[in-house]
Simulated scan of single mutants.
Amino acid sequence: MRFGKIDYLNLAPFDVFIKSYPMTSGFKKFLQSKKSYPSRLNKDFLFKRIDAGFISSIAGYQSSLKHKVTLSGIISKGSVWSVFVIPNPQSEDYQSATSNALCKVLDLKGEVLIGDRALRYRYNGGEHIDMGKLWYQKQHLPFVFGRLCFNAYGDLYKHISRKFNHKKTKIPYYILTQYEKKTKIPRAYILEYLKHIYYKIGPKERLGLKRFYRQLLFKKIKKPSRF
């Protein structure tokens, strides 16, 4: 069972949860070795080098059509604090296909910046447009940045999703300290950031995804594929 993990703070609660979940040592060893940024995991997932993971919404489109998805995602309802357009020359962020597409959907110009780098940029007072906030202002719906999708072992990952969605995970102090050292972002700021993200996909989140996919079609934005 090969699970790919996004190595960002936004999945810190899931990281703590899955470490305590009763899985084989092989699963947990692979989990720690297969950590990367979203667009890299998209490729691994599309080429079936991993069985499951939190995949960028734009790359999870085919999985949603095939019902190979769970009800867990990476979601914001308004400001997300880590997906920005910043006032630099137009450029995409190589780490996230979904955020690059969202920038086009929102008709924004500038440099796309995501993840822990974006959060640190915000903490340091950098000028930015929060794409989660702008999406909500325009659509009045949450935005699902990524979704737990699977190529295999669907029953297992649906069970993990249900357990995760219904459990309030507290991040231990020592892990917060590790994150602080790694990202150069204070613990208190990390905890405040995580209040802007939630993980359970319900009717409004599904509608938000449908709205996003429709915009991709209208604007002729290509989705990642194997070919």
Rank of each mutant, 00 (worst) to 15 (best):
F218T: 12
K66L: 03
Y21V: 04
A188W: 13
F54N: 02
K184G: 08
R40Q: 12
L217E: 07
C149A: 13
L11S: 00
L41K: 00
K167A: 12
R147D: 06
C103A: 15
Y61P: 00
Y123T: 08
L108S: 14
S56M: 04
Q139N: 09
L9D: 02
S72I: 01
S225R: 07
L102T: 12
G4Y: 08
Q62L: 06
P13M: 01
T183H: 08
R226T: 14
L31Y: 11
A97G: 13
N124P: 13
H140E: 15
I185C: 06
S82K: 11
A12W: 00
G53L: 08
Y179S: 01
K48F: 09
S36M: 03
G4C: 11
L113A: 05
R117W: 05
L141D: 10
Q62N: 05
L141F: 13
V69P: 00
K204S: 14
Y157Q: 08
A97K: 09
P203D: 14
Y179P: 04
I114Y: 11
K138E: 11
G125Y: 11
Q178H: 13
V112I: 15
F54C: 00
R214Q: 09
Y193T: 02
Y173L: 13
F84W: 01
G146W: 01
L31T: 03
P87H: 04
E92D: 10
W135P: 09
N10S: 12
T24K: 08
K35V: 14
S56T: 04
F14D: 01
R2Q: 13
A59Q: 03
M23L: 14
S25H: 13
C149F: 11
Y174T: 15
